[in-house]
């Protein structure tokens, strides 16, 4: 209670710098399972629309809107923390599954010289982002584990788009021109992915370690870009 704090702080004048410690209390309206940077505002918003009696369609649409909003943030990576604040893994899952499915049906799927299988793409994307996240945490990053996974997953989007473009180009022809077009598209989307993710991730690092965090991200998108570029359909 308040009177208690009041009397305690007035008793011990010398401990005034530490008096603030006793005032820290977790208010009940902050969800426990969130991350530290969840502002009070988001929970207030949840109270405004009570989700109990709304139609299921609205609930799904709201989540879809949140995912779509994050896609826009990746496409236009200005340094805002919206992608970091409310993380979700729906978008990364969607993008990863789309990419892995599009990489199927490649050249020589039935012999052992083929391209990456569905599971391999899945493992590379998820284990790659987990390792990059652990790396940035070990280097002393201030970003939380799932925030980093969310950012890395959402930033695959340019490469997934590039994969769709590549498949469309490959429908037409598979000659030199087609390869040049695909090379340009994949290079551009690789640069975009790296730029977007570092715009979100690099700020969480001490300045003298930024390059150490950015390099694995670069390698990660480079490998995914390589998989997209070397995809060749079977005939």
């Amino acid at each position: 209670p308040d009177w208690f704090h009041w009397t305690r702080t007035s008793f011990t004048e010398a401990s005034r710098p530490f008096a603030g410690l006793s005032d820290v209390s977790i208010s009940e309206d902050i969800p426990v399972e969130g991350d530290i940077s969840v502002p009070v505002g988001s929970s207030r918003r949840d109270e405004e629309f009570s989700t109990l009696d709304e139609p299921v369609k609205e609930t799904i649409l709201r989540d879809l809107r949140a995912v779509g909003n994050k896609f826009i943030h990746v496409l236009y990576p200005k340094r805002s923390s919206a992608l970091l604040r409310d993380w979700d893994l729906w978008g990364p899952l969607l993008l990863c599954v789309t990419l892995a499915l599009l990489l199927q049906g490649g050249a020589a799927d039935n012999d052992d010289q083929g391209g990456p299988q569905f599971a391999e793409v899945f493992v590379i994307v998820w284990f790659g982002s987990i390792i990059i996240t652990l790396n940035s945490k070990l280097l002393g990053g201030t970003i939380s584990f799932f925030q980093s996974l969310c950012v890395l997953g959402y930033c695959i989007m340019p490469l997934t788009v590039a994969m769709i473009v590549c498949r469309l180009v490959l429908l037409g022809s598979s000659g030199t021109v087609s390869f040049a077009v695909r090379l340009i598209v994949v290079t551009a989307s690789f640069g975009w992915s790296t730029f977007a993710s570092t715009a979100f991730l690099a700020d969480s690092q001490p300045p003298n370690r930024k390059a150490l965090v950015v390099y694995p991200v670069f390698l990660f998108y480079f490998v995914i870009g390589w998989m997209v570029l070397t995809f060749s359909p079977s005939q």
Binding site: G115, P116, E120, F231
Partner: peptide, 8 residues
């Protein structure tokens, strides 16, 4: 010759 990514 048939190009393959040789992912293995």
């Amino acid at each position: 010759y048939k190009y393959t990514p040789e992912f293995q």
